[in-house]
């Protein structure tokens, strides 16, 4: 039951992260769909490519919701020739997403990584985002520890333990990344 819900959360994370990531990439400068796909695959794909179809369906949904404007169609061309720009609504959504710590659930690594790289790309304070994420993780770990201390069910305690070990792994990654932010920023800006 628990494992299943984690699985769905992962799927959900991928579904919500792609549009926000594309928005973040657009915040640097207006871009064509193929440029967005190239940068997405390059920085965030982790070996997996984002299908063109998903890029364009995501962009058209973002356009429908007023988060990007898809003007500048070059004559005689399909969606690949459209240049997209972020709107104010889109920019404020990116800002809010970067600023807010993600819900501390296990298997967050790809979301956290995406947020850190985007924050660096956009010259946001990645270190304070990571600190907020760290605090949020520790709060959740405190709650889980409290569950372990007070529950009479061994099963609940063991499930809490499973989550605790995974959150701890996230936290270690957060600490290592905090310590290496400068080097990562250099790489991101050197593109």
């Amino acid at each position: 039951m628990y494992t299943l819900s984690v699985y769905f959360e992962c799927m959900l994370a991928r579904v919500t992260v792609v549009p926000l990531t594309l928005l973040g990439l657009l915040e640097r400068e207006p871009s064509h769909g193929y440029e967005l796909k190239r940068d997405y695959d390059n920085y965030f794909g982790g070996g997996r490519q984002l299908p063109f179809g998903q890029v364009y369906s995501t962009l058209s949904r973002l356009a429908r919701d007023g988060k990007v404007s898809g003007g500048d169609t070059e004559p005689g061309a399909g969606p690949a020739r459209k240049r997209y720009a972020i709107t104010e609504l889109g920019a404020s959504e990116v800002d809010e997403w970067l600023r807010e710590p993600a819900d501390p659930e296990p298997y967050l690594q790809s979301v956290l990584f995406t947020k850190v790289v985007l924050a660096l790309m956009l010259d946001r304070p990645a270190d304070s985002y990571l600190a907020a994420q760290r605090a949020s993780h520790l709060n959740r770990m405190r709650e889980l520890t409290e569950i372990k201390r007070t529950t009479s069910s061994l099963m609940d305690a063991l499930q809490a333990d499973h989550a605790l070990f995974h959150l701890e792994a996230d936290l270690r990654w957060i600490d290592v990344t905090s310590a290496r932010l400068e080097a990562l920023a250099e790489m991101v800006h050197a593109r």
């Binding site: 520790l138 770990m141 605790l164 070990f165």
Partner: peptide, 13 residues
């Protein structure tokens, strides 16, 4: 150790 720190009310780094 974060699992140990989770027994505390608050943490600083």
């Amino acid at each position: 150790d974060a699992r140990v720190a989770a027994y505390a009310d608050r943490e600083v780094m």
